[in-house]
Nucleic acid binder design. Structure first.
Length: 306
DNA sequence: AAGACGAAAGTGGTTGA
DNA sequence: TCAACAACTTTCGTCTT
């Protein structure tokens, strides 16, 4: 769903160019990019979903935005036009100069930011697609002037975080924080701000997405790992996952799975790799045992050991 | 002695009046 | 703008292995 705009919010001109293929709306007078492919659907965050295993979440999946945006260098008029302008000439030249300054400033900023982005993303070993998405988000943020009042680094981190979520390769805020050197709170803040302003919808991350990384950090066997995923699926069906932090659930599932496969890890160990506390693991763990019939299974296994 | 457990108080963020 | 609220953390004492 795309909104049609009649007036440029920047210069008030009504000379709007609407490019359907690219999903861009550009003001012909000042070159301001008003909107780029606004995608609707998708859920905001967890919480409000008391549904019973609805699988409808996939609706708002990734869309177009492949364009890495080539000719952004919008220019204000050409020298040839100026002669026709008469008294407007001065204004026009000023406009053009201003435009030039802005765009070079943006370019310079972008160069720095992309370097930083590259650094962080390679530190986290993120796939190229995520890096590109993050770059795109950052670029949009700059165009919208969202960086003002925030450090460039934090916006980069926020963009990366958002890109990770969109591509289902979630990193925790802690990891982003460690990689970027920005405080967790700050990243979360800019992440929320940027995604809201750009209307980037991100559905709640799936706990299962965290399993492989956590499992390997804990050196768990593949069997235990798939057991954890299995547990997670059950948990989702039992509606244990909504409104909970995905990492906590993933951690608890791993903890149980490890127990069941005789590869015991302490709550402390699991908590550390998942970036939650032992208490959270305990709570989730208890819920899992209560709601699923895992308690029996555990006892069985315990007996076997004796 | 280390790990698991649970109660209680505190934190940061969301929601709805 | 503020209070209620939910999830999560911190801290700490107790029980279990």
């Amino acid at each position: 769903m795309t909104t049609y705009v009649k007036k440029c919010p920047e210069c008030g001109s009504t000379n709007i160019f609407y490019n359907k293929e690219k999903g861009e709306i550009i003001c012909k007078d000042c070159g301001y990019v008003i909107e780029e492919s606004m995608v609707d659907f998708g859920q905001e965050w967890r919480e409000f979903e008391s549904e019973a295993g609805e699988k409808r979440r996939r609706t708002g999946a990734p869309m177009t935005y492949t364009e890495f945006d080539m000719g952004l260098g919008t220019e204000v008029g050409k020298t040839a036009d100026i002669s026709k302008l008469g008294k407007e000439k001065g204004k026009f030249l000023r406009l053009r100069k201003w435009q030039y300054r802005i765009s070079t400033a943006i370019e310079r900023n972008l160069k720095l930011a992309l370097a930083e982005l590259k650094r962080v993303s390679s530190y986290l070993k993120l796939p190229a697609s995520v890096e590109e998405e993050a770059a795109r988000i950052y670029r949009l943020a700059v165009q919208r002037g969202l960086v003002r009042g925030r450090s460039m680094e934090s916006v980069v981190a926020g963009a990366l975080y958002a890109a990770c979520r969109r591509h289902d390769v979630p990193r925790t805020l802690d990891e982003l924080s460690e990689a970027s050197g920005i405080e967790k709170k700050e990243i979360g803040r800019t992440y929320r701000f940027v995604t809201r302003e750009l209307e980037i919808r991100i559905r709640p991350s799936n706990p299962a997405d965290y399993i492989p990384r956590f499992a390997s950090a804990l050196k768990l066997s593949p069997e235990a790992q798939s057991k954890a995923v299995e547990i997670l699926e059950k948990a989702q069906k039992a509606e244990l996952t909504s409104g909970r932090g995905p990492t906590g659930i993933a951690a608890a599932a791993l903890y149980v799975a490890a127990l069941m496969h005789g590869e015991k890890r302490t709550q402390r160990e699991v908590a550390d790799v998942a970036g939650v506390t032992e208490v959270t693991i305990r709570n989730r763990y208890k819920e899992l045992l209560d709601e699923l019939k895992l308690a029996k299974e555990l006892k069985k296994i315990k007996k076997k050991r004796k």
